[in-house]
Each structure stands twice: as structure tokens, then as C-alpha cells.
Design a protein around this nucleic acid. Structure first.
Lengths: 205, 205
DNA sequence: AAGTATTATGTTCAAAGGAACATAATCACT
DNA sequence: AGTGATTATGTTCCTTTGAACATAATACTT
């Protein structure tokens, strides 16, 4: 699809975007490849655009857009512990951020998405482990079987939301943990939509 | 830290970066806020830079860098099936991409990182499920207990790499699957460093 | 009332940067 | 030998864009 030279120009553009944060100008590309003429760059850009590897805003400076930038990345805050209330998602309690594309994060909207670091093994039978990052959405729609973050005794806890005989309760996915049956005044903070795990690797053994 | 007006300027810059793919020029910012003078924008930018909310390349066009862009996002290709050989990671077999920040992805380098969609439940006891995306690194260092993608009978398969009595073998994390004992000529394609799961949610019940 | 940060205007300048045109060498393929 | 795509040069033009300077109205604090 692309010639070797065309590929290297595209690579350079993307590398600069990643490393410097800005798109190179045509003259910067020219200098990097030691072209005697800037027109060479214009031709490469035109070709890359024609072949669909590049988009651009005509007549604007540094306005090349590569597919890598097109994916909508969302920035999800990770909370150590969500303070009671949930309306007060203060910046203070943010432990970090995950940035990933919306499709992989399984989120649709930008608002009301947050993440928690899982503590303990109460959801181990749902294959959610201690240390996992779960991404949650603050949604109204709650379905039977959803895994939710709920506020119980002032602490945020991950449980499965189950409706049986018309009555909802919160179920831990570990036989060693009790269910929370009369789930009155449920403070559901969010529904788990996806999960990120850093795989442990033992060094030397 | 920031005044309301300063915040809204920063928000506008970041929103444009996300939605259009390019940083707005000072005059574009000016028009958006209906400033009669472009100098107002220059003052906001200077303030935002002084307060550390913005970086910029002086005297370059559209060269504002916001913290949101600073996180190193890596673009990881997802392969449906890795073709035998591994040296031929052709674009054809790419099923999609995951984009996430390198820290969350648990990767250090940019090269030799790829992802696979997990098929089957042979790793269920390691809490890796059918449909999960596993991110792998093509590394030389292989430790006892690592979960690896290996080429077995022309198919890529996820197994745990175990060394017992000095002999390595590949172990499935599901009693219903056999271990692959005499692991001679092991074609290890990569080591699992992280995992992304889209949580299933049943609609209506 | 004085001092200072913030927000705003009006104007001018020079550099940065995209675009176009004519021309030509090289290579692959027929 | 002829055709076309790719790669390359040299030059010119003009818009875009960042930067600077002088000035001033608010707003907040002391």
C-alpha cells in the first residue's frame, strides 16, 4: 500500500506527534529528510492523504491528523476510595488516571466514567482480582447481574446486583463473603463496564 | 488554582485538540471567545503556562501542549490470530487496535507489543476469560509462571509457562485441558503483561 | 486609598508555514 | 523505446500565526 519512503515519512510524522506533542511543519519534515526542496514533502503529504493514511486541515499550520490521533481517548480518573455522596468526586481522592480509547473502555459517554482499584478478593468468582482497575459508569439503567460499586457502611465495595423474586440484593462473588440481603437505600455509585489488569510477573525464581 | 475564565480557555484548547485533532491557533481561540483583541489570548496562554497547566514550543504555530497529551499513549494492534513465524506480523491479520497509556498497559517499550483476543476458557483458573484482550510483549526474559502466547500446531494458544525440575512445559489453567509437557522447540510469541475486559451486561431480564 | 492580579482593547510587525509551478532523474513495467 | 508512478529540486507567493507594546477597565485585597 505504501512505499518504503512514504512509510518513513508517515512514521516520522507520528513519532514527532508522540514525542514532541505537536505535528511537524512541512519544513521540519524537509530538514529531517534533508530534502533540498519543501515540495517533496508536499508531494508525500498529498500521497499519504490520497491513500487515506492522513487527514489534514487545508491551509492551517501543523494540521496533519494521523489515524493514531483519531481514536477518541478518554481520561478516566482512578479513585482510591469514593467519598460518601458521590456528588463530591473531589480531585483530592484521585489516585491516578487511565487513558484509553472509548471503544476498548466500553464507554459511550465522557461524563460520569470513573475507575476504582479493586481491594480484596470478594469478586474472585467473577474473575475480578485484588489490584485490578475496574472502570465504571454512573448510569441509571441497572440490570440484574450487573457488577456495581455500592456504598456500604461508608465504604465503597464491589458486588453483583441481583434481583430475585422482585427483590434486589447485593451478592459477593466469593462464598467466604456474605450477601447483603435487604438492600434498602442502595447507594449504587456505578456499574462496571470494563476492567484492566496488570499481569503479575515474578522476577527470577 | 485557575480562575473560571482561565479554566474555560484551557478547556476549549483541550476540547479542540480532542475533537479536531489539532491545537487551535491564538486567533481561533480569540474568535471563539469573541475577544476583540488577540492579545487577550496571549495573556491567558502566558498565565496557563506560568501556572503549569500548559507547555508550549515558542514561536511555533499551534504548538500548545496540554497535560492530557503528555501521557504516552501507545497504539497496540489486536491480532485475530498470529500467523506462524511471528516475524511476519502483517497488517492483514490486524483485527483492531487498543490505545492506552503505557503505564496502564504495563509496557515499557513501544516495539514488540501486541494484543490477542482470547478464545476459549483454557485459562479460566488464571482468571482470563473468553473474549478478553490480552496485551503481550515480545520479550527475551521468560520467568517461571509467566503466561505466554505460544505457537502450537500452527495455532496461537495461551498457556502458563512452568519450569519444574529444570524442565519447562506449558500448562493450561483449566483441569479439562491437558498440559503440553515436552515443550521442545517452544515458539513463544509473547508474555502477557496486561489484560482488558469488556464486562458483559445483560440487557433487560 | 493604594496596590496588584485579572480581563480586556487596538495596532503593528516579522517569522512561520502552506501552496503552486516548472522541471527532471530514477525505476518498474510493458 | 515508451509510459507512468515515485522521488526529487528550485523558486516564488501570500496567508497564517505568534509576539510585542501601549493603554485601560474591573475586581480583590490590604
Amino acid at each position: 500500500m505504501l512505499t518504503e519512503r512514504q512509510r518513513s515519512v508517515l512514521d516520522f510524522i507520528q513519532r514527532e506527534q508522540r514525542e514532541k506533542g505537536i505535528t511537524p511543519s512541512t519544513r521540519e519534515i524537509q530538514n529531517h529528510f534533508r530534502f533540498a526542496s519543501q515540495t517533496s514533502v508536499m508531494q508525500y503529504i498529498a500521497t499519504l492523504e490520497r491513500k487515506g493514511f492522513l487527514n489534514r486541515h487545508a491551509r492551517k499550520a501543523r494540521a496533519l491528523i494521523t489515524p493514531a490521533m483519531k481514536v477518541r481517548i478518554t481520561d478516566i480518573p482512578i479513585y482510591g476510595q469514593i467519598p460518601a455522596g458521590m456528588s463530591t468526586l473531589t480531585e483530592q481522592s484521585i489516585e491516578g488516571h487511565v487513558s484509553l480509547d472509548m471503544r476498548s473502555a466500553n464507554v459511550l459517554k465522557n461524563r460520569g466514567t470513573f475507575a476504582l482499584r479493586v481491594r480484596g478478593d470478594s469478586m474472585i468468582d467473577a474473575h475480578i482480582l485484588d489490584g485490578d482497575i475496574v472502570i465504571l459508569e454512573d448510569t441509571k439503567e441497572l440490570h440484574n447481574g450487573d457488577i456495581v460499586a455500592a456504598l456500604i457502611d461508608g465504604e465503597t465495595s464491589l458486588k453483583r446486583y441481583v434481583v430475585e423474586h422482585g427483590r434486589p440484593y447485593l451478592k459477593a462473588e466469593n462464598p467466604r463473603y456474605p450477601d447483603l440481603v435487604p438492600a434498602r437505600e442502595l447507594k449504587i455509585q456505578g456499574v462496571v463496564v470494563s476492567l484492566i489488569r496488570k499481569q503479575e510477573r515474578r522476577r527470577r525464581q
